[in-house]
Computed example of a mutant assay.
Amino acid sequence: MAEDLHIIQGTKEEQYQALIPQIKGLLEGENNLIANLANMAAALKEQFGWFWVGFYLVDQNELVLGPFQGPVACTRIQKGRGVCGTSWAQEKTLVVPDVEKFPGHIACSSLSKSEIVVPLFKNGMVWGVLDVDSSDYDQFDDIDQHYLEQIVALLKIV
């Protein structure tokens, strides 16, 4: 297991390409889901400096706050509510350039301006979401979607 993270400068794509092997190293040999989610959130926050990076995990008919990096967050989100709940319900990644324009957006922080939410799948079912918020508008795009979907696919759950 690698415990050092090397922050890479360069284009967004170069940063992701350098980060993925480091995340693989963090996950290698560790079977504890919470530890892996925590390290993944920390690695993403450290590399990109986003406002908030974390996970919500499915618990019956709600998403419940999991490991994260950033300010205090909403604890529970119902399926179909906000960006996270909608991503879960639609089973797809959502890129939101301006959260204030998203119908039903849940404002855990007024400082969040844009967001990307990536569902986590096992056996075709969503078991959680990766939620990333930025304090800048239009922070996320197809490059983020492509690489964040690859990164969450590295998670193995029992």
Rank of each mutant, 00 (worst) to 15 (best):
M1C: 08
A2I: 13
E3P: 00
D4K: 15
I8A: 11
I8T: 13
I8N: 10
T11Q: 09
E14W: 11
Q15L: 11
Q15T: 03
Q15V: 08
Y16V: 02
Y16S: 06
Q17Y: 01
Q17F: 00
A18M: 06
A18P: 01
I20T: 09
I20W: 01
P21F: 04
L26H: 09
L26V: 05
E28G: 05
E28S: 14
E28D: 12
G29Q: 10
G29D: 06
G29N: 12
E30F: 04
E30H: 13
L33H: 06
A35I: 13
L37I: 09
L37A: 03
A38Y: 01
A38I: 00
N39L: 12
N39D: 13
A41P: 00
A41R: 08
A41M: 03
A42Q: 15
A43G: 09
A43N: 06
K45G: 11
E46P: 00
F48R: 12
W50I: 04
F51D: 12
W52I: 02
W52Y: 12
V53N: 12
F55G: 05
Y56G: 07
Y56D: 06
L57R: 12
L57E: 11
Q60G: 01
Q60S: 13
E62T: 13
E62I: 02
L63V: 10
G66S: 12
G66I: 07
G66V: 07
P67D: 11
F68R: 11
F68Y: 15
G70H: 05
G70S: 09
G70Y: 09
V72K: 14
C74H: 08
R76S: 14
R76K: 15
G80E: 09
G82E: 08
C84Q: 03
C84I: 11
G85E: 02
T86W: 03
S87Y: 05
S87I: 02
S87W: 05
W88V: 04
W88T: 06
Q90I: 02
Q90V: 02
Q90E: 15
V95K: 04
P97Q: 13
P97K: 11
D98Q: 11
D98T: 08
V99E: 10
E100M: 10
E100K: 09
E100S: 14
K101T: 14
K101W: 00
F102G: 10
G104D: 09
H105L: 04
A107L: 12
A107W: 03
C108N: 09
S109L: 06
S109I: 07
L111A: 15
S112T: 12
K113H: 13
S114Y: 04
I116M: 07
V118P: 02
P119V: 02
P119Q: 09
L120Y: 07
L120C: 10
F121H: 10
F121I: 06
F121M: 05
K122D: 06
G124S: 07
M125S: 13
M125P: 00
V126L: 01
V126C: 08
W127F: 14
W127M: 03
G128K: 03
G128V: 02
G128R: 02
G128W: 01
V129K: 01
V129H: 02
V132K: 07
D133E: 14
S134D: 15
D136G: 09
D136Q: 15
Y137N: 08
D141W: 04
D144K: 07
E149I: 01
Q150W: 03
I151Q: 07
V152L: 05
V152T: 11
V152K: 03
I157D: 00
